[in-house]
């Protein structure tokens, strides 16, 4: 009797894992039913649990290794990202970062990663891009997406297919460098018409916090217009333009160079955030695997002890029956 109950208990544990026919479990408790027993198994099979434990252990090993890889990559890229901040800061001091300037043609540059398993950084930047799109939409206005990275592409293709202008992927095959990013920036400048470029990326703060950030780059015409009207960029007129070039030319050169510098920083910051997010995601997943393994070990040992106890009871009661 006790054995039947135990067998049922073992089965209850096993059913979600391998139940060939879920109705069997129900029927066996109602009517006497000979269960199909695996060969070599006398009472309760712990094979399933053991297999599960092995696979969980392997997964834990993999996630731990991925965490290590992300941690070492993070350290390398973090210093580069921090150094690259010096590139855009002078530009912001000169030309400003004014997201509130109202323009007709907006181009939203969404920066994401190519690989997954890095938490929510990609969906954050996609979400911010969509919000920007909605914020800037209106009659006579144009919003376009330029997408960097596989992950944002997969999300944006779903609902904003019509607005996508350019998609760039496989950025991180070689370590990121300025030449590469500037060539990308060049491609964007040549292929897209814009009044304002809005770069959406995750700014790296620490391993666990990333700030979704928008950097705005205005086209030289808009900068000139704003400076003349004395709006947010009114102070630009205080600077004196040297040399034979006109102010328009200087502004165009500056805007282009500003764009490539800001892009460089944005791509690096996003890559750093990606590694940081991957590190914390892998950390929590290996912790979860550990918890799961603990629970499985507990059930495994409990079942094993129960089967030993049953066997002992059987032997003792058999012996006492013989004596009596």
């Amino acid at each position: 009797m006790a054995m039947a109950a135990l067998r049922r208990e073992g089965r209850r544990f096993a059913t979600p894992l391998l139940s060939p026919n879920p109705a069997n479990a129900l029927r066996s408790s109602l009517v006497p039913y000979e269960e199909p027993v695996l060969s070599g198994v006398r009472c309760i099979s712990t094979q399933v649990v053991r297999n599960r434990m092995k696979s969980v252990k392997n997964i834990q090993k993999i996630t731990k290794a991925m965490k290590m890889v992300a941690a070492s990559k993070l350290r390398a890229i973090q210093t580069r990202a921090e150094n690259s901040r010096g590139l855009w800061q002078p530009f912001t001091a000169l030309l400003g970062d004014t997201p509130s300037v109202d323009v007709k043609k907006n181009v939203i540059i969404t920066i994401s990663s190519d690989k997954g398993l890095c938490g929510g950084i990609n969906s954050t930047s996609v979400k911010i891009s969509r919000a920007l799109h909605k914020l800037n939409s209106g009659p006579e206005k144009e919003n376009k997406y330029v997408v960097l990275g596989e992950k944002a592409k997969a999300q944006l293709v779903r609902d904003s297919k019509k607005d996508i202008e350019l998609i760039m992927t496989e950025l991180q095959k070689n370590p990121l460098n300025y030449t590469q990013v500037s060539v990308i920036a060049d491609d964007i400048l040549k292929n897209v018409e814009f009044d304002a470029l809005r770069i959406v990326y995750n700014k790296f703060q620490s391993v666990v916090s990333f700030l979704p950030t928008v950097s705005t780059i205005l086209s030289p015409e808009v900068v000139e217009r704003e400076a003349e009207s004395g709006g947010k960029l009114g102070e630009l007129d205080l600077y004196e333009v040297e040399g034979a070039e006109t102010k328009g030319e200087v502004l165009q050169n500056l805007a282009e160079f500003q764009f490539s510098c800001v892009m460089f920083n944005a791509v690096l910051e996003n890559a750093t955030s990606e590694q940081g997010a991957r590190m914390s995601a892998m950390d929590s997943s290996s912790r979860n695997a550990g918890d799961m393994l603990d629970r499985l070990t507990l059930t495994y040992n409990r079942t094993r002890q129960a089967s030993i106890t049953t066997e002992l009871i059987e032997i003792i009661s058999g012996a006492s029956a013989l004596e009596g």
Binding site: M168, L171, Q180
Partner: peptide, 23 residues
């Protein structure tokens, strides 16, 4: 050798990707 450039770019027109090119 530090300054290697590699990426693939595809232009989209009316919701359809054009032929991608690799750099």
């Amino acid at each position: 050798s530090r300054e290697k450039v590699h990426y693939s770019i595809s232009k989209w027109v009316d919701g359809k990707p054009q032929k991608p090119s690799k750099y």
